[in-house]
Amino acid sequence: MPGKTSGWAFALIAVAALAIAPLWLGTYPRYVISVWLIFALSAVGLNIPIGLASIYSFGHGGFMLIGAYATGVATISWGWPLLPAMLLAVVIAIAVGALIGLPSLRLTGFSLAIVTFAFGYMLFHVVKAFDLTGGPQGLFMPETALARAWGGRPLYYMVLAIFVVGVFWAHSIATGKTGRALRTLGTNEIVAQSLGINLLRAKMLSFMLSGVYGAVAGSLLALVTTYVAPETYTPELSINMFAAVMIGGSGTLVGPILGALFIVLIPELTQSAQNLSEIIYALIFCLVATLFPSGLLGMAKSAIRRLRPQPVPAAVRE
C-alpha cells in the first residue's frame, strides 16, 4: 500500500495536471473532464453512506436532480444570483437527506435501498409534472459569465476547485470521528450503540452529507451542460452513481473518482458505435464488475503488489 506521503504527492500532481491541462485542451475534452469531475464529486459523496456506513443508497440521482433544478428554478424563474441558488440547493438536499435517513433505523439492506430508489424515481416524475420545473422539456440555463469569458475556463476552474475542496472534506470526514462512527455502525450496529453512537443520527447524517455532495454536483452539472432536463436525472442516473462507487472501489477516496471516470468516459468513447453504444457500455460494465469485484482501485492495488517484491511481514502471528 502506498504510504501517506506518496498519496499526497500523487494528489498534488493530479490536481496540478488538471489545473494546467485546460490551457491547451479544446472545448470538448474540457467539457468531458468537467463532467467527470462533477460525477466524481457526486460519487465521493455517495461513498459516505455506501463505503463507510454500508448503507446502500439507490437514490443519489435524486440529490443531483435537487441540485440542478433548485439552481435552475432559482436563477431563471426567480432571478437569484448563482451562489444563493446553489446554497438553496444544498439546504433542500440536507432537509431531504434527513427525511430519507429517518426510516433507516427500522429498515435495513434491501428495504432501505428500495425506499431510496423510490425517492429518486418520484422526484424524476415530480419535475416532469410541474410547469415551474419546465415540465418534460426541462429548463435552459442562461449562459453565465463564467462560461462566456476565456472560452469557459473559469467555469472549469470553479468545478475543479469545488471538486478539490469536496475530496478534502470527504477525506477528513472518513478519517475523523464521523467516519469512524459510520464505519463502526456499518460493521456492527451492536458495537456502535454500545460505544455511544446514536444510530439514527449517524445514519441521517450520512444521507445529509451525501445529499450535499449530490446537490452541489447537480448544480454544477446544470451550469456545465446549460440544460436541466428530466431525462438526465432518471433512476438510471442513481444506478450509475451506485455503480461508480462500487466499480471504483467503495470505502476508498480514489475509488469513486475512478468509477466516475468509467461511467463518464465509456459512454463517450463508445458513442461512435451509435445503437450499440449502450450495449457495449453494459457489457464492459458486466465484465468489470465480474472480474474485479473489489473495484478498479482494488485491481490496481493488487497489480502493483504483484509487480513489486513484497517484504515478508515482520511478524506473522497466531
Binding site: V191, Q193, S194, G196, N198
Partner: peptide, 23 residues
C-alpha cells in the same frame, strides 16, 4: 437507548469483542 447509557457510565463489551478488524 444504549447510546445514552454510555454517557451515564455503562460500558458494554459485546459478545465476540466487536473489535473493528480493519481499523
Amino acid at each position: 437507548p444504549a447510546h445514552q447509557l454510555v454517557r451515564l457510565g455503562i460500558s458494554h463489551v459485546p459478545e465476540g469483542r466487536g473489535v473493528l478488524a480493519e481499523l
